[in-house]
């Protein structure tokens, strides 16, 4: 009973810590281990014998390089679109709107999260129908046509889905910005545009990076939106989905690609202080 506070604290956090280790690190480890096993090619059952064949298959087939590039293009596009939309939104919410209306605005930004993911994506699907969809109705009078299902539809759908995850950190970052810093910039002769790009953006940068971690990683791993809006277009998640039932080790090897990309990404943004913003 007479234990030191340190020991008490340790015992208090040991359970969540164990959970963290088992669930997160453990599952990553399991993923890695699975990727170096063989399968029985007929019954699809995993055989626990070491092989590098899965990685050879992944890296020797140009299709998987292409799909990795496509996935990166989508994840980066989604992130950029979210940044471009979220910055003015967050700036308006944090600095222009009256403090009283801010909770309402935050609630509005969050509303897309209240509905089921599938409902939202199926709604986008009906909008993207090449001939009868809402987008076609909207664009055809202007002489264009709906992009139909494919990469563009996926980028739009994912940008819509993940936007709140970008707006919220940037909003929090901008709200923390003291008024006096903006006043100081104007006082020193900077017009609003200069203040925005010279002061607001650099100070909010870690928050933007924090938001991008969400949008980027969520996009990297998505496969359901791609199935529903992608037409014949596929991303890494779909490769995993297509293969996990028949060739689990191969699917695991493919699944390691986004994990590695995320580790590289997190490593490269670590210095910005974005991780303190999460």
């Amino acid at each position: 009973m007479q234990r030191s506070p340190k020991a008490r604290a340790a015992s208090l956090i040991s359970l969540p810590l164990a959970w963290l280790l088992i669930i997160y690190i453990g599952s990553l480890f399991a993923l890695f281990i699975t990727s170096i096993w063989k399968i029985d090619t007929f019954t699809s059952k995993v055989i626990r014998e070491f092989t590098l064949q899965n990685f050879i298959d992944v890296f020797s087939d140009r299709a998987y390089f292409n799909v990795t590039i496509r996935t990166l293009v989508v994840a980066i596009s989604v992130t950029l679109i979210c940044v471009l939309i979220a910055i003015p939104m967050a700036f308006f919410m944090a600095r222009i709107a009256k403090p009283k209306s801010r909770p309402v605005l935050i609630a509005l930004v969050l509303t897309p999260l209240w509905a089921s993911y599938l409902v939202k994506i199926y709604a986008w699907r009906t909008m993207f129908y090449p001939e009868t969809g809402f987008l076609n109705w909207l664009i055809s009078p202007l002489g264009g046509s709906s992009p139909g299902f494919g990469m563009i539809a996926v980028i739009i759908g994912l940008s819509y889905l993940w936007l709140p995850y970008m707006v919220l950190p940037i909003y929090a970052g901008m709200e923390k910005l003291p008024n006096s810093v903006l006043d100081a910039s104007a006082d020193l002769g900077a017009k609003p545009g200069r203040t925005f790009f010279g002061v607001v953006l650099p100070i909010t940068w870690p928050a933007i990076i924090a938001g991008s971690i969400f949008t980027f990683s969520l996009s990297m791993g998505d496969y359901i939106t791609v199935q529903i809006l992608g037409g014949t277009f596929q991303m890494l998640g779909n490769v995993v989905y297509q293969n996990f039932s028949l060739n689990l080790p191969f699917a695991a090897a493919v699944a390691l690609i986004p994990v590695i990309i995320m580790i590289i990404y997190l490593g490269s943004v670590r210095k910005t202080g974005a991780l303190d913003n999460l």
Binding site: T41, A63, Q242
Partner: peptide
């Protein structure tokens, strides 16, 4: 060509 190869080929084809 056994089914495992069919699956590999299909996966590669779909992501070409």
């Amino acid at each position: 060509v056994p089914y495992a190869e069919w699956v590999k080929a299909w996966s590669s084809f779909r992501n070409q």
